[in-house]
Write a protein that binds this DNA or RNA. Structure first.
Length: 456
RNA sequence: GGAGAGGUGGCCGAGUGGUCGAAGGCGUUCCCCUGCUAAGGGAGUAUAGGCUCAAAAGGCUUAUCGAGGGUUCGAAUCCCUCUCUCUCCGCCA
């Protein structure tokens, strides 16, 4: 969520910056809402002030021993009847206008940072390593699907039987390699990069998803768990109860629903929701390994083959919660932490900075790390590292007590460190041999019981 | 799943209808006193808004005592729903 003060004081500039990321903000509607809210609020507060004054005076009279029948009190009570009615109406319209404004603001994306490229192209920042190709390897490279199936360790057909499209089963050495990757990542981030290992819920409530920005705008990308926990209200028939259960949009039920996490950014970042943390506790650096669940709605044609785009995948996540002045420094470090994993695995990659048109809803600046996939003869995204500045913190009311002892919004960052499934794909393709076997990267061998290749 | 007890400021804890945004204590900030230390004295110390002011300071004001509704002229206090925590019983990896 953007700072409403910023919108009010610098509306045109904000609109311009939002336009660069393809979001057009309705200025006149916004201004109309703000003005209306102002006058309704002033009116409401005047009425409340009046009410407080008069009821205070009634209180004084009562304390002084006057009875309710006294004429003075009677006059006051009479006035209060009028105020009471006016106030009820005023509060209703105030509530309406405030929720309109809220609904307007909560779908406005973050402002891109000034260093984000404005034209519609991501910019490559740096490359590491040299990508292998069929030519450089002097044999025809296979993609991860044929490698995995060739080894007899990767099985999409059975997974489809169990669950449907976009799932997979790994077995034997491949499943172990997958686990080895995740363990290696976690160990590196906790032991070398100073992150605290965390274990988090995979089911979260709507408030958490709102906090990090997935809700309300991107509900379609999420898997929702309907919890049927409804107290039967008095006089409610069975049919009415049934109706209530299926009215999933009713606000009270939104609270009841759980969602499978699309990324562990959600639980990690929301640990500070509604908190005021101390200055000394910063930076907070958390990492966790979790499955991630994505419905991939709207991606039906993309990457239908293989493990690149699945409904469920494991990911090691890095989250930093930092002082606002340190967040860009932290972003560089965080990208570096993710890169380190690829370097140690000796997987070629490049880092790109996303342009204004491509950054995610909550992000002010994002670096993608793309790993080399020989079979696709291209780089594919394996990590996305973002600084969300105060955008999520404002939604979450996540603050710290600053140098002057005043609460101030934190900055939040997150990045994959890395997506385990895609990393496995990269290892398979980059470490494949002409005979169909796959060598094990050196750093993973301790996690693999010392074996150095997967053989059919 | 059943029964009960609770949720008040940074923390502890009082407060069962009326000058209560909330006693008292702890913590903390500033000032005074003391040769230093210890002790002592005084003042302050929630958050988010609105209005006022050139701005800051200050002043005025609204909301917030787990959340949301209700009763009432008036709610931290009474009623309802939800939620979380704790205790006991049951079940369970």
């Amino acid at each position: 969520m953007l700072d409403i003060h910023l919108l009010r004081t610098d509306l045109e500039n904000v609109c311009k910056r939002l336009l660069t990321r393809g979001f057009s903000l309705d200025m006149t509607y916004f201004q109309k809402l703000v003005e209306e809210r102002g006058s309704i609020r002033t009116n409401t507060q005047k009425l409340e002030e009046n009410r407080n004054n008069i009821s205070g005076m009634i209180g004084q009279l009562r304390v002084a021993g006057h009875g309710i029948d006294d004429k003075e009190i009677g006059d006051f009570l009479h006035q209060m009847l009028v105020i009471h009615d006016q106030l009820s109406l005023a509060k209703i319209s105030l509530g309406k206008i405030e929720s309109k404004l809220q609904q307007f603001l909560e779908v406005v994306p973050n402002l891109p940072h000034s260093t984000v490229p404005k034209e519609g192209k991501n910019e490559e920042i740096r490359r590491w390593g040299t990508g292998k190709t069929s030519d450089s390897l002097s044999f025809s490279v296979k993609d991860h699907v044929s490698i995995g199936e060739g080894l007899g360790l990767l099985d999409f057909k059975t997974a489809t039987k169990l669950s449907g499209a976009r799932f997979s089963i790994m077995k034997g050495g491949l499943a172990r390699l997958h686990r080895a990757l995740a363990q290696f990542m976690l160990d590196t981030h906790t032991q070398k990069h100073g992150y605290t290992e965390t274990n988090v819920p995979y089911l979260v409530n709507a408030k958490s998803l709102y906090g990090t920005g997935q809700l309300p705008k991107f509900e379609g990308d999420l898997f929702k768990i309907h919890r049927e926990r409804y107290g039967k209200e008095e006089g409610m028939t069975a049919q009415e109860l049934q109706g209530k259960i299926h009215d999933v949009d009713s606000p009270s039920l939104q609270e009841e629903n759980w969602y499978l996490i699309p990324t562990s950014e959600v639980p990690l970042t929301n640990t500070v929701r509604n908190e005021i943390v101390s200055l000394e506790s910063l930076p907070i650096k958390l990492t966790t390994l979790t499955p991630c669940f994505r419905s991939e709605a709207g991606n039906y044609g993309k990457d239908t083959h293989g493990m690149i785009r699945q409904h469920q995948f494991d990911k090691v996540e890095l989250v930093q919660i930092v002082h606002p002045q340190k967040s860009y420094e932290a972003l560089e470090q965080l990208v570096g932490h993710a890169e380190k994993i690829l370097q140690k695995l000796e997987l070629p990659y490049r880092v790109v900075v996303l342009c204004t048109g491509e950054i995610g809803f909550s992000a002010a600046k994002t670096y993608d790390i793309e790993v080399w996939l020989p079979a696709q003869n291209t780089y594919r995204e394996i990590s996305s590292c973002s600084n969300c500045e105060a955008f999520q913190a404002r939604r979450m009311q996540a603050r710290f007590r600053n140098e002057n002892g005043k609460p101030e919004l934190l900055h939040t960052l997150n990045g994959s460190g890395l997506a385990v499934g895609r990393c496995l794909v990269a290892v398979l393709e980059n470490y494949q041999n002409a005979d169909g076997s796959v060598s094990i990267p050196k750093v993973l061998r301790p996690y693999m019981g010392g074996i150095n290749r997967l053989i059919a």
